[in-house]
Structures are given as structure tokens and as C-alpha cells.
């Protein structure tokens, strides 16, 4: 995980400081004006692990997409460190995601035509030349640690657990400060799901990265430091409904 210095953003370059999340008065609407999500206030400290739960169609993925800068809110601010991704242009949001975020999806979304290593290191293809070798080396190391053969095996014939571990390696190979996971265990059996979450949290904590995971699976959300519920498009803190949410890193909690 790369260090953060908290300097203000410039063209999507991060704060490079620990990107504490501070979202205020966020609404996301559909093209027809229908409200998809309302988030009054959400604060997540650097290095925290936040679970997002809620029924299907409630807006969990919309929340995650908004936090990732894939959706632009109609109102409000989503600040990662000093950078309000809601105010950035599309190119700057792309750059911000590339430099500071790792995304994991429910159904793996691997490139079937690429090897596990090429999948895990796919970010090198559009990273600055100077970073490419490091991304590839990190991807290889991650695959090794996650127990996936990096060679040219056909990823489409791999098990769901292996495929999702490749996706985890891909999310982490760029050295992100934030990992956003959308139903990361939905396609896995219990054993693989538990293993994956354990690996993900361990890797994230080693680098002090923030994890935000959307999941129906109580085992996943319970493994997080905190939970936010999304019901009918309204995101609320699991313990303090409607109040400000501040999630502290595990280490700080332990000290407290």
C-alpha cells in the first residue's frame, strides 16, 4: 500500500494522504430523476473495514459505485482525503481510481483470454511506464501468496475461489489505498468465501488500506469493523441510524 501525504488533489491525484472518506448529503438519481440513493453522512477513517448490507435493489452497489467515482452524484460531496471525487471530471475520476482504488466484483469479471498473472497485472497496461514493472511484480507476489498459479492456465476452467483470488490480486496489484468489493463472496461456497474475506482483510490491513465491502452475506459484513445498512435507497449506519458514522482502524480500536 502506498503512503499518503494528504496533499490536495490535482487532476484526480489523490490527496496522497490517508484517504479518509467523508461523504455529505449525497444523492444519486437515475436519468429520469428517480432517487437511487441518499446518503446524509458517512465518515470512514483510513484503514477501516466497512460492511454495507441491505436487501437486493436497495442501492448498495449504487453506493459503492458512487464512492468509486463510477457514478456522479446529483448532489453532495464524496471526499477521499482532500479530493471530492464527485466534483472531478471523468478522466480525473479514472485516474483517481487507478491510483488509489482496487475494485472486486461479484462474478469475478476476469479477462478469460489472459493468464492469471496478466489478469492480476492488467492495470499495468494503462499505468505510467515507470509503474508497470512494479505492478506486475506485485501481482505475481500476490498470486503466489493467494495460492494461485500465475502461469498460462485457462482462467475460465479455474474454480470460483481461484478466480476470485485472482480478482483480489488484481485489485491489490496497483497498491491501492481503498478496496471496494461488491458482493465478493456471492459466487463462492462457504469455505472459499471465508478464506477470501480473511485473505482480503489480512492483505488490506498489512498495507493500512481501507476496505468497503457490499454483501448480503452476514459473515462478510460481520468480519468488518462496521456496518452500514442501505434500505430503500437510504444509507444508515448500522449502530447509529442517521447519525455521523466514523469507522476507526482495527489497530486504533485495539488501542482504545
Amino acid at each position: 500500500m502506498r503512503p499518503c501525504d494528504g496533499s490536495p488533489s490535482r487532476r484526480g491525484r489523490a490527496p496522497v494522504t490517508a484517504p479518509a472518506l467523508s461523504a455529505r448529503d449525497v444523492t444519486v438519481t437515475a436519468a429520469d430523476g428517480r432517487l437511487l440513493l441518499r446518503l446524509d453522512r458517512l465518515d470512514v477513517a483510513p484503514g477501516a473495514a466497512l460492511g454495507v448490507r441491505g436487501p437486493s435493489g436497495a442501492g448498495k452497489s449504487t453506493l459503492l459505485n458512487a464512492l468509486a467515482g463510477l457514478l456522479r452524484p446529483a448532489t453532495g460531496a464524496i471526499r477521499w482525503g482532500g479530493t471530492d471525487v464527485a466534483a472531478l471530471g471523468e478522466a480525473a475520476r479514472d485516474a483517481f481510481r487507478r491510483r488509489f482504488m482496487g475494485l472486486i466484483f461479484q462474478d469475478f469479471l476476469l479477462f478469460e483470454e489472459l493468464s492469471p498473472l496478466d489478469n492480476a497485472a492488467v492495470g499495468a497496461a494503462f499505468a505510467p511506464r515507470a509503474e508497470r514493472a512494479a505492478i506486475r511484480a506485485r501481482a505475481a507476489a500476490l498470486l503466489d501468496r493467494l495460492g494461485v498459479a500465475a502461469g498460462a492456465r485457462d482462467v475460465s476452467r479455474m474454480s470460483g475461489g481461484e478466480r476470485q483470488r485472482i480478482a483480489v490480486a488484481r485489485a491489490l496489484s496497483g497498491g491501492p489505498r481503498v478496496i471496494l468489493a461488491d458482493e465478493p463472496t456471492a459466487s463462492l461456497d462457504r469455505a472459499n468465501a471465508d478464506l477470501l474475506i480473511a485473505d482480503l482483510l489480512a492483505l488490506a490491513r498489512e498495507g493500512g488500506g481501507t476496505v468497503i465491502a457490499v454483501s448480503h452475506d452476514p459473515a462478510v459484513t460481520m468480519a468488518m469493523d462496521r456496518i452500514v445498512s442501505v434500505v430503500d435507497g437510504v444509507a444508515r449506519d448500522g449502530d447509529h441510524a442517521g447519525a455521523a458514522v466514523v469507522a476507526a482502524p482495527v489497530a486504533e480500536r485495539a488501542r482504545a
Binding site: A68, L70, E90, A91, D94, A95, F96, R97, R98, R99, M101, L103, F105, L109, F111, V122, G123, A125, F126, R170, G174
Partner: peptide, 16 residues
């Protein structure tokens, strides 16, 4: 399109 959307989600610029 899903592959390209994935690239974009991973931070690839449109130009890529």
C-alpha cells in the same frame, strides 16, 4: 462492452 467497462472501472482512461 463488459470487458471495456471493467477496464474503465479499474481506472483505465477512456483513451485506453
Amino acid at each position: 462492452s463488459r470487458r471495456f467497462a471493467l477496464l474503465r472501472a479499474l481506472g483505465a482512461p477512456r483513451r485506453f
